[in-house]
Simulated assay, not measured.
Amino acid sequence: MENLKDAIVWAEIPVLNFERAKAFYSSILNCELYEQMMGSLRMGFFPMDPESKGVGGAIVQGHGYTPSALGTKVYLNGGKDLTKVLNRIEPANGKIIQPKTKITDEIGYFAIFEDTEGNHVCVHSPD
């Protein structure tokens, strides 16, 4: 990984019901997802500061995008304490698969949830 700042630069979460998924992620992350068509794909972009050149991502509906509990896991930013995000998952019709779990003092905490589309997604925070 010579000369690479970040190994991951983008993530896409497949969805079948775009409106339901957009409402879910907007609710649990307490943010608006910017929606745009990219060719035949309907995309809802997670907030990202373009100045920081950080990792971004989107929910995506279209051919070849099938939700699954199997495969690659995406870790969303849970803010300072992911408990706030976790408290909004079940009211938004998601399911907590693994509760807040300490990784190490230095790395922080993670949890896994199932979204409204059947994807298993992770969330991380330092506290």
Rank of each mutant, 00 (worst) to 15 (best):
C122Y: 01
T72D: 00
N77Q: 14
G79A: 09
V74G: 00
G54M: 03
P126Q: 14
I89D: 09
N3D: 10
N3M: 13
M48A: 14
Y75L: 11
V85F: 14
F46K: 05
I97M: 14
F46E: 01
G71M: 06
S68M: 10
P126V: 14
D105L: 11
F24I: 15
A11F: 09
G56E: 00
M38Q: 14
S26H: 03
P50T: 05
L4W: 00
E35H: 01
G78K: 05
V55A: 07
N119M: 15
G108D: 07
I59L: 03
E19C: 06
A69G: 13
D81G: 11
D105P: 07
H63I: 10
L4K: 01
E106S: 13
A69N: 03
E51D: 12
V74K: 01
V123S: 08
D127C: 15
P99V: 14
Q98S: 08
I8R: 06
S26F: 01
H124G: 08
T83E: 13
A58Y: 05
I13P: 02
Q36W: 04
L33Q: 01
S125C: 11
V60W: 04
P67R: 02
L16H: 05
G108P: 02
K80W: 06
P91D: 05
F24S: 12
L16E: 06
I89N: 06
G108W: 06
G57W: 00
K80H: 13
T104P: 07
A21Y: 04
G56P: 00
T104A: 12
N30D: 14
G54F: 08
S52I: 13
Q61V: 08
G71W: 01
L16G: 02
W10I: 00
P67D: 02
M48H: 04
N119R: 11
P99C: 12
I97A: 14
K73V: 15
V121K: 05
F46I: 08
H120D: 15
F18Q: 03
F113W: 06
I103E: 03
H124Y: 15
G64F: 03
L70R: 09
L29H: 02
K5G: 12
S68I: 12
G79V: 12
E90V: 14
S40F: 09
G54I: 04
V60D: 00
S52F: 12
Y109I: 12
R88N: 14
T104E: 09
E35V: 12
N17Y: 05
E117V: 10
Q36H: 05
L76G: 04
T101D: 10
V121N: 00
E19L: 08
V123E: 05
A23M: 10
V55K: 09
G78L: 10
Y65H: 07
H63T: 11
K73P: 00
H63S: 10
N77D: 15
A7S: 07
T101E: 11
P91V: 08
I107V: 07
A7W: 00
K100Y: 06
S52K: 13
V15S: 09
L82Q: 03
D105G: 13
K5W: 06
G79L: 10
D81T: 15
Y25L: 13
E12D: 14
A11R: 07
P50E: 07
S52L: 15
E106G: 09
F113M: 06
H120M: 15
E117P: 04
K80C: 07
